[in-house]
Simulated scan of single mutants.
Amino acid sequence: MESRTIALIGAGGKMGCRIADNLNKGSHRTRYVEIGERGVARLAERGLATTAQNEAVASADIVILAVPDVAIGRISAGVVPQMRSGAMLIVLDPAAAYLDQLPMRNDVTYFVTHPCHPPVFNNETTSEAKRDLFGGVAAKQAIVCALIQGPEADYEAGERIAREMYAPVMRTHRITVEQMAVLEPAMAETVGAMMATVLGEAMEEAVRRGVPYEAAKDFMLGHINIELAIVFEKVNPFSDACLVAIEYGRKAMIKEGWRELFQPESIREQIDIMLHPEKLQALKTEG
């Protein structure tokens, strides 16, 4: 693979350090941009020195923004004007691109990639891989990628870097920015993460009503495992009694029309509120 010069912005953050560790295994020339004291210290622990943003970006073939979602619009506004013509900006979340927060510049390629994280059902055998629940260290994961703008040939270059950033990668899915926003936040966070918190609250309620904590946790996690296997791996059907319980719970807990969350206008609202958390209180008040 052709060696590239990479500027990693936010290199000392949690995600930045993960990416730095993986890029250091390759042949690229990576310059690390970090202004936070703790981030600089994390890089120093790895034997890595920082470079000023303007210096790193001006010479880079690829600029990676490993920064919080809420900061992508603001930081890209300062970074993109410093990029050379033909360079590529990689962002790690579709939110800013979906809301058109990336600066207008037609001679720069925009690429977005996001990890799927290691799946619940996998064939990992080492203790390190089994503990790597987030991915990017030892457990295999799939990733999604989208070319926002730029020459079609740049997609392959972006995907190769994404595979290195999130290694080990078992599959890459090419999708659109709009499809990535359907996956996150709508599917994985607005619905998936919310449901996960409800499961935790259900276990806590069982404990509050007298079930020993360890018994409740073992029972819940074991049942989640087989329930996910039934739904996603089609291992067996639910029992007739369980199907009745599912419908009883659905009527009690699930609001009619919940699939409207996947409509473009709802996804746009979800992303807007995620990037502007202060708007959530106003939404609660209206509700």
Rank of each mutant, 00 (worst) to 15 (best):
Q263N: 11
L221E: 12
A252N: 10
G222Y: 12
K217V: 14
G249C: 08
I267F: 08
P237L: 11
A241F: 08
I224V: 15
E247R: 04
E260Y: 05
V244W: 04
E227N: 14
L228I: 06
F262L: 09
V244M: 08
E278Q: 15
D240A: 13
L228K: 00
P277H: 09
K251Q: 13
E227P: 00
K279Q: 11
D272I: 06
E260A: 10
K279L: 14
G257D: 05
R259E: 15
I246N: 01
K234Y: 02
K251H: 08
V231Y: 01
F219S: 05
E260W: 03
K217E: 14
Y248P: 01
V244C: 09
V244T: 11
V244R: 07
Q281P: 00
K279E: 07
Q281K: 09
Y248E: 14
E227K: 01
Q281V: 08
E256C: 04
F232D: 01
A229K: 00
F262R: 00
K251M: 05
E233K: 05
M253P: 05
P277Q: 09
E260S: 13
H276S: 12
Q270L: 15
E269G: 08
E278F: 09
F232Q: 00
I271D: 00
P237C: 11
V235H: 05
A216L: 04
H223Q: 13
R250S: 07
P237W: 08
Q263T: 08
A215C: 07
F219H: 06
Y248S: 12
L221Q: 14
A229L: 01
L275V: 04
I267Y: 06
I226S: 14
G249N: 08
M220W: 02
V244Y: 08
